Amino acid sequence: MKKAKKTNAPAETDNLASPGLLFENLRNVEISHEEKLERSLLSGLLLQQTDTLNRQRLELKKQRDHEAIELLGGSTTSLGTLKALIAAKRQPYEPRFPRSIPFFSEIYRLNGWHHLDPAYYIKPDEVGIWINELIYNRFSQEVLSTLRMFNPKRTGGGRLYKHF
């Protein structure tokens, strides 16, 4: 004869029901008027602090844009003037390596990437390293660092503008 197993069904249902009771109790907690005032005061102070910090950052940025910078030639300029000059000369993008020039297909061949399509827009990160080595390092050392400073990487990894 088999012995019947004892089950703790009521205890299990109590354990399952108790978290629900906790949440119900948390929903029914009343906050006094003084605590509500204190919370609203603290949230107001936090918002005011962030607004103040943002205003201070904007002021510092404006000051930096107007600071005079002495150039190697002896003349002076400001970051704001340089930014405006660069923005005015921004041109529409024209590919430096059109499909008629086999630049990317040769890079893919040299790296042994026969399974990848060189015409595909998104390329492996190593292609960017090769472009920096082969093209931008032919200029003076400041060119690539300046381009990276004025056109930083975004959170997704790409840049807002192409280096050209």
Rank of each mutant, 00 (worst) to 15 (best):
P102Q: 10
K61E: 10
A84Y: 06
D65G: 12
E67T: 10
R39Y: 02
K5H: 05
V143S: 01
L82A: 11
G44Y: 00
D65Q: 14
L47C: 13
D117P: 08
S75I: 00
I69E: 00
S145H: 00
A68Y: 08
E94R: 05
W113Q: 00
P95E: 10
N151S: 06
L147V: 07
E24I: 01
S75H: 09
E24C: 13
L21M: 10
A9D: 13
G73N: 15
E133V: 05
G44S: 10
R27V: 03
F164H: 06
I69K: 01
R159D: 07
Q49C: 02
L110Y: 09
P118C: 07
L58Y: 13
K3T: 09
T155E: 11
K5T: 00
G20L: 05
R57S: 12
S32M: 06
M1D: 09
E12Y: 05
G157V: 00
L160C: 06
N28C: 03
L116F: 01
E24M: 14
E94L: 08
L147D: 07
T52I: 12
L72A: 14
R90C: 15
G156K: 06
F104S: 08
R148K: 11
D51R: 11
A88W: 02
D14Q: 05
F104P: 13
L60S: 11
L160V: 03
R109L: 01
H66A: 03
